[in-house]
């Protein structure tokens, strides 16, 4: 009984209130998962929303925890939800001012993998975006040094995509031994 009451009385998170006031047209969906707010944001306004979340003095999501992506190509229900966008780029933010965590998801279509880099907002996004590029092939526009970070430079393909075979395409046997930089 008490638990139900608590849930009802929870106030709307400040981040939702402020975003609905300032960037309502950018929000595609919102959700709550494990105590953090989940926002789905239109790709063309993703940078503006992230900048607002970081620079607004009340929210101050100054810490970028992670940048990653999800390949929904085998999740029909997820695909249909956002106009068959195959990829979902995910930003995890944390506010040291008590606003907790927020997760910003941005649908990215397979035929247009470009998305604005957030390295201008958080320097730490540099390697995180390189990893996302390496694993999923997301093209972060404006990134200062967008090249592979985990796989060898001459690797072809993006191994965390769902259509990449788990055991690879024979690169375990035929990788390049003569590396110049070894």
């Amino acid at each position: 009984m008490n638990e139900e009451k608590d849930v009802e009385e929870q106030p709307k998170p400040l981040v939702l209130e402020k975003l609905e006031a300032h960037h309502s047209d950018a929000l595609l969906a919102q959700d709550e998962a494990r105590g953090s707010v989940v926002l789905v944001v239109r790709k063309d306004q993703a940078y503006a929303v992230l900048e607002y979340l970081k620079t607004d003095p009340e929210l101050a999501y100054t810490y970028l925890v992670d940048v990653t992506a999800v390949d929904n190509s085998q999740m029909e229900s997820e695909l249909m939800q956002f106009d068959y966008a195959r990829f979902m780029v995910v930003y995890h933010l944390y506010s040291y001012q008590g606003q907790g965590r927020v997760r910003v998801k941005v649908p990215v279509h397979e035929n247009d993998l470009r998305i604005t880099s957030v390295t201008g907002l958080w320097q730490g996004a540099n390697w995180l975006e390189r990893e996302t590029y390496d694993m999923f092939g997301i093209d972060f526009e404006g990134h200062p040094d967008l090249r592979r970070i985990l796989m060898p430079d001459d690797f072809e393909g993006h191994p965390l995509r769902k259509d990449y075979p788990l055991r690879g395409r024979g690169e375990r046997e035929s990788f390049n031994f003569d590396k110049q930089n070894v």
Partner: peptide, 11 residues
């Protein structure tokens, strides 16, 4: 048993 791992260095 994945795309990136050598399946035995004795190869």
């Amino acid at each position: 048993d994945t795309y990136t791992l050598i399946q035995g260095v004795d190869q």
